[in-house]
């Protein structure tokens, strides 16, 4: 099982703040999981943005971060705090 979270503009565009997906052994890294989401089409294309950011288990990571069953993954646009 993978728990997914979407923040800020992505959450609004997708109309979804979180979801859970059954684990797929083909997800070697975060990028593979993103590909699965992109294949949903429509609004999900927002995850193709070049400046997309992501996190695994509450720590920001790159798209080539390895993924394992039970992980939590978040996708979000460039941060704008401060």
């Amino acid at each position: 099982m993978i728990r997914l979270q979407y923040f800020a503009r992505y959450r609004e565009t997708l109309g979804l703040d979180s979801e859970q997906l059954e684990w797929n052994p083909a997800w070697g890294q975060v990028a593979d999981l993103r590909d699965t989401l992109l294949a949903r089409g429509g609004a999900w294309q927002v995850l193709a943005e070049q400046n997309l950011m992501c996190a695994r288990n509450d720590e920001m990571c790159a798209l080539d971060e390895p993924l394992a069953d039970g992980d939590e993954v978040a996708f979000f646009p460039t941060v704008t705090g401060g």
């Binding site: 923040f7 800020a8 978040a74 941060v79 704008t80 705090g81 401060g82």
Partner: peptide, 12 residues
């Protein structure tokens, strides 16, 4: 501040 601006998950 420079790191917070780019590495902390806040959105305005």
């Amino acid at each position: 501040m420079d790191y917070l601006k780019t590495r902390a998950p806040f959105w305005k």
